[in-house]
Simulated scan of single mutants.
Amino acid sequence: MGMKDHHIKTNHIQLHYIEYPAPGKPKLLMLHGITANAHAFDGVIRAGLGDDFHIYSPDLRGRGESDKPAFGYSMEEHARDIIGLLDHLGIEKAVLCGHSFGGLLSAYLSANFPERVAALILLDAAHELNPNAARMLLPTFSRLGVLYPSFDVYLRMMKKAPQNTFWDEAMESYYRADVHIDKNGITQTNSNLANITAMAVGLTSMPWATIFEHIHQPAILLNALGIYTMEQALLPANLAKKATKLIENCEYAVIDGNHQTMLYGKGAREIVAAIRVFYKKVKHLVPEDKTVPANG
């Protein structure tokens, strides 16, 4: 299966996105987590999603190969980036699939740009996380801004990270896209800790319960209940189910793994199966494909 890299201008920044072509298949836009990058879904795509969907996965602003402005990390700015991407691709109404922060961005788009969203797939994203979420995410945030002597050292550290309860070969492409390596081998994450912190703080001021209540498209929330850190799940079942009740028409299913590992191995296969079933229920809501082949 091929993969194509593209760079476009949208909302005054350069946005990088990956295209996984599948001619004749329905389009799916996938949005990654807060410190992640466009390769976050490599495990799900390898698990078979790329056989059934023509997938687009952008690096959100401040991550990966996309521009990293000093300011402008509100949910509105993120949303306008994605609307610009949809315009570029000629996608009238998208099926959105978002993990964690990307799920919240998908929810925001669904509520505030309803004419551009046909259906919504939330991967471990809800209006409220575990009360200990800030401490639970410290191991993930702690890799940002650190200088590692080589990529091999960085990768060994990631293999030992507490949230990575097992290792899947698809994780390596994700972590390779997570960093830049200078001529001496010094390795550092592409994401800037200050920018990511600004995003995290901004999330806490958003009226997420109200936003979820304004989602009227069909939705499904796929919830990973495995231990993430601190012997707890990042999104407990009670909060996930509460989120599904806020949305007018939202299904719920449990996926193997934790908030991170759900995207790989058995969890990835279960996500693929759930998306296939869900899409059959909503495909009548997706306009006839008018996508213009991207050449950016």
Rank of each mutant, 00 (worst) to 15 (best):
I181S: 03
T197S: 05
S205K: 14
L193N: 03
A209P: 09
V179L: 10
L193A: 08
G185Y: 13
T197I: 04
M199R: 00
L203G: 05
E213A: 06
S191F: 14
N184P: 02
N190F: 15
E213Y: 03
T197M: 05
I211W: 13
I181F: 11
N184E: 14
N184C: 06
V179D: 02
N195P: 02
I211N: 04
T197W: 02
I181Q: 07
F212H: 04
W208G: 01
H214D: 03
V179E: 04
N195Y: 09
Q217Y: 09
A198R: 01
L203H: 05
V201S: 08
G202P: 01
N184H: 12
H180A: 13
V179N: 02
T204R: 13
M199G: 01
A194V: 07
I215R: 01
I215M: 03
L203C: 11
A200S: 09
N190A: 12
I215N: 00
I186T: 07
N190K: 15
I196E: 02
S191A: 15
S205L: 08
S205G: 13
M199I: 04
N184V: 14
N184I: 13
T189Y: 06
N195I: 02
T210G: 11
V201F: 14
T204A: 11
M199Y: 01
K183F: 11
K183V: 08
E213M: 06
I196Y: 01
A200R: 01
K183W: 14
F212E: 01
T210L: 15
D182V: 10
G185N: 07
I215D: 00
S205H: 14
N195S: 08
M206R: 05
V201D: 10
I215Y: 02
N184F: 13
